[in-house]
């Protein structure tokens, strides 16, 4: 009887620990290792969203290629900007927020520059398509 009780307690503990580490405290997705769900040109991605046909990209990992016009560089972050339009918020296009490890590589590039990158698509805010946790594939 005691043996059965002990086994039940051990299983419950193991289940609890598993839940704590792998469910409650599971790590954020590493998008650098994620396979892209879509591969297309930057222009095509922007056209699809601005034409109201971008819904299927929301929440997906997307690989894009095209000419990045500029990089917004802060102390720790680089945002690559593809510009396709002008509107009430100024430039409109795609804004790609990079993970910190690409900081120096992106800073060394002279813009405009052709690039291929992938990132998590957070959506379209009526002016820009936002890609987050981006990593550089080719420049």
């Amino acid at each position: 009887m005691k043996k059965i009780l002990l086994i039940v307690v051990i299983i419950a503990l193991a289940g609890g620990l598993y839940g704590w580490f792998f469910v409650y405290n599971k790590p954020h997705t590493n998008f650098e290792n994620s396979k892209p769900d879509f591969k297309l040109s930057a222009q095509q991605l922007f056209n699809d969203f601005s034409g109201g046909k971008g819904e299927s990209y929301n929440g997906k990992v997307i690989e894009i290629n095209g000419t990045a016009q500029k990089a917004d560089i802060s102390d720790t972050l680089v945002t690559l900007v593809f510009v396709f339009n002008e509107g009430m918020f100024g430039d409109e296009g795609i804004r790609c927020l990079f993970i910190p490890k690409f900081y120096n590589r992106l800073k060394a590039i002279t813009y405009p520059a052709p690039v291929t990158l992938k990132g998590f698509c957070a959506g379209y805010n009526d002016t820009d398509v936002i890609l987050e946790h981006c990593s550089l594939i080719k420049n």
Binding site: N25, N58, A122, I130, E132
Partner: peptide
């Protein structure tokens, strides 16, 4: 954009 909110815990 709602998907741009970052939480400490992924869950």
């Amino acid at each position: 954009l709602m998907k741009s909110f970052v939480f400490e815990k992924a869950l």
